[in-house]
């Protein structure tokens, strides 16, 4: 008994942040997977990605009232709304589809700016409150510590989502197409599927993922004026760190970022602002040549 107590004391201060890091990391994973999809499959640099997450978040704020039904409704509406926004974005991108990434970046940025303004106009400039279902409002004991029940459930749900995503990508025909397109974008064109359809499909999927993340993750990264920027940045860092080659890479990168933002800050509070920057710099420097080789066709 004493040995266990001593053990728990040592890991004590870091267990909760570590757990938080998993929650945060999984959230970032689901959110970022949309961007990975966009870029890896359709070669689109979507700077409005954060907006799609924010749509989910604001939907949650608007519809959640503490009941389970409202959660289900918010999820459905949020996913649909964000997916629709994705399709709209695909439509807007069509005239410049053959252009450079520069035009995509500027166009999607414009949409993000306009969309963000619309959201603020609709919901006001303050961060709206999000009400989780009543049963999950409290906390749960984890290894002798209190931890927010919602976050614990979120970890489970997000893990299930990640697993589902993995299965879709690995086992379904659509997933096979996705993997093939990431390997060789030109091949997709040769398959006779219209590029416009692919764009719409990919952006809808990305929207759905980001929207789902936005709704479910609202208590963790909630809706607000900064949300879109934050989520975009985190997703970009995930793409840069995790690469486009595998879901495992994306997941690892997302978890690493999650832990850096929570556990890292707890371990090294003085260096907190620099941690993410340093991590990105370290990974990029280590893979500098590797990046060039892998993304030569990008």
């Amino acid at each position: 008994m004493t040995a266990v107590a001593v053990g728990t004391n040592r890991i004590d201060p870091y267990l909760i942040p570590a757990l938080d890091g998993v929650a945060y990391g999984l959230l970032v994973f689901v959110a970022a997977s949309g961007l990975v999809l966009c870029f890896g499959v359709a070669n689109i640099l979507n700077l409005a990605h954060g907006l799609l997450y924010a749509i989910g978040g604001y939907t949650a704020a608007a519809l959640l009232d503490g009941g389970w039904a409202s959660l289900a409704l918010a999820l459905a509406v949020g996913v649909l709304a964000a997916a629709a926004a994705g399709v709209l974005l695909a439509g807007l991108l069509t005239p410049v589809a053959t252009g450079s990434h520069l035009s995509q970046a500027l166009l999607t940025f414009g949409v993000a700016l306009a969309g963000g303004s619309l959201l603020v106009a609709g919901f006001g400039p303050d961060d709206p409150q999000v009400q989780v279902p009543a049963t999950l409002e409290g906390s749960v004991m984890v290894a002798g510590h209190r931890y927010a029940a919602y976050r614990l459930v979120f970890i489970v749900v997000a893990a299930v989502l990640a697993a589902a995503l993995y299965l879709v990508v690995r086992r379904t025909r659509a997933g096979m197409l996705v993997r093939a397109a990431v390997d060789d974008p030109e091949m997709v064109a040769c398959l006779g599927v219209s590029p416009a359809r692919i764009r719409a499909g990919v952006l809808a999927a990305a929207g759905a993922l980001a929207g789902a993340a936005g709704v479910l993750g609202a208590p963790i990264i909630g809706p607000g004026t900064d949300t879109a920027d934050t989520v975009l940045l985190l997703s970009l860092v995930v793409v840069v760190l995790g690469g486009l080659g595998s879901m495992a890479g994306t997941l690892l990168a997302a978890l690493a970022i999650g832990e850096i933002q929570t556990l890292g800050v707890a371990l090294l509070p003085a260096a907190a602002p620099f941690l993410l920057f340093a991590a990105m710099a370290a990974v990029l420097a280590a893979r500098a040549r590797g990046l060039a080789v892998r993304w030569r066709t990008a």
Partner: peptide
């Protein structure tokens, strides 16, 4: 971090760096 990257990758990396600097 950017000298070996090309095209959109540079856009992503420089964007991320710019944002992180602001943070």
């Amino acid at each position: 971090l950017v000298v070996h990257a090309r095209g959109v990758i540079v856009l992503m990396i420089t964007l991320a760096i710019g944002e992180l600097v602001v943070v």
